[in-house]
Structure formats: C-alpha cells, structure tokens
Design a protein around this nucleic acid. Structure first.
Lengths: 107, 107
DNA sequence: CGAATCTGCAACTATTGGGTTGCGCAATGG
DNA sequence: CCATTGCGCAACCCAATAGTTGCAGATTCG
C-alpha cells in the first residue's frame, strides 16, 4: 500500500541525521556504517539505527562484502513522497502539478 | 535558512494525522480545529497541537473570525521539501532533476 | 442577562526515538 | 594462529511527542 510507504519515507526523512546520511550516500559510492559514522558526531551504532530506518523505508540497501556491510542508496521510494507532496500542494500551483505528472509518469 | 525549513516541513509531514489534516485542508475551505477533530479519532486539543506543528513549518495559517479560528493551508514550504527530494534523488534519475529545476525556478 | 458554544492554556501520562555503553562473533592479515 | 578489525545485538537512559483531562476566557444568541 502506498499510504504505508509514504509514512515510512516521510518518517525517514524527518531526521536531519538521516537526511545527511542520504546526502552522503547520494554523492558517493556505497559506504559502511563505520565510515559514515566517522563524519558524524555520533557512534556507529546510532548510524546503524538510522540506516535501519532508511532501510525500512526502502531508501537504502545493504550488501555484505566479506566482513564489511556496504550501504547503498535506493531512491525509488522518494517518488512516493514527491507524489504525495504534489497531490496535496498541486491545486495551489501548477508547477507542482507538472511535477506530479513527471513523477507519476515514472512510477 | 533552507535547511531549518526542510527540517520543520519534513517533521510536520512525518505524522499521518498531520498529513490527513493537510489533505483535508487542501480539499476544502478553511476549517476550525473542532470540525477537523470531528472527523478524526482524537480530541480537539490534540488536533490543535498538530496544527501548531504545521504552523511552525509554515504550512497552515490561522485567522480569527469572531469566536472561531479558521485554519487554512499555505503550501509554499512544500517546495522546500520537494526541492530537497529532487536534489538527493536527482542524480539517480533525470526526471527528478528536471523536477528540481522546475521547483528551483519557482523559488 | 444568561446559557450555550468555541477557543486557549496548563498539567499530566505514556510511548516513541535518538543516543549511549558493553559485549560477543565473524572475517582478515601479518 | 592469533591479534586486529568490523559488524550485530541487547540493555539502558533521557528527551521529545502524541495524547489526555480539566478549566477559564471570549463570543454569540435567545
């Protein structure tokens, strides 16, 4: 169901640390939780919790490689969030309406 | 600053009740917290707390009218959220990149 | 005026959530 | 082969938040 998806995606995006993680993962290659934590003021375990939330929303995927676990961004669910935003805001401005059509076409 | 705006908007959108409130306000005329609460399984006071969160994000505005307080949707800040989504997801798909340009042009 | 109605504010409770420490286990490399 | 490295899991802590009840202040209307 789409509604559940939107809930998990928006919940995932609500935290600034998780948005920072997504930004980092969107910029570069798949990273491990340890290396991601090195750039943040929190522990690896906290980062892994955030990555778990992102994983539940379908925004990251984990692949085990030897003793490392690399996290990779899988941004497809962002379309659900964008679609919701466009649907609610669309009646106010046709820029968002165009945006909605673009996103919906892609689904 | 834009970052703070995105934070407040995404936080506001993370709760299903608040999204339901926005959907209701986007569909119809400005409503009071009492009438909005009548359609939900929670009290008027809880609804008002949610509307306060939406207000902090700039997504609703309150106008006093006699003894009623009408809440109206002001969806402009949604563009910040859409812009963030487009920026992070955009490198993966140029549909979202086009979307980003559309939103940014509008700012 | 007085009753009804609607809002505003405060106190309190319970649950969620972000963060930590601690420890055990698997993989790797000199 | 064993010391090192990196991950996974669990328990615990504290702050924030979604929700409640209760009540007082305005405003409308008969």
């Amino acid at each position: 169901m789409r509604q559940a998806a939107a809930d998990e995606v928006f919940t995932a995006l609500a935290d600034p640390t998780r948005r920072a993680l997504l930004e980092a993962l969107s910029r570069g290659a798949p990273e491990t939780s340890s290396r991601l934590a090195a750039e943040l003021p929190i522990t690896r375990q906290a980062v892994e919790k955030h990555l778990a939330v992102l994983g539940r929303a379908g925004l990251v995927e984990r692949t085990r490689e030897g003793r490392e676990a690399r996290y990779e961004m899988t941004p497809a669910p962002l379309a659900d969030a964008a679609s919701w935003i466009a649907a609610v805001g669309g009646e106010w401005d046709d820029t968002l309406a165009r945006l909605q059509r673009a996103v919906e076409r892609r689904r």
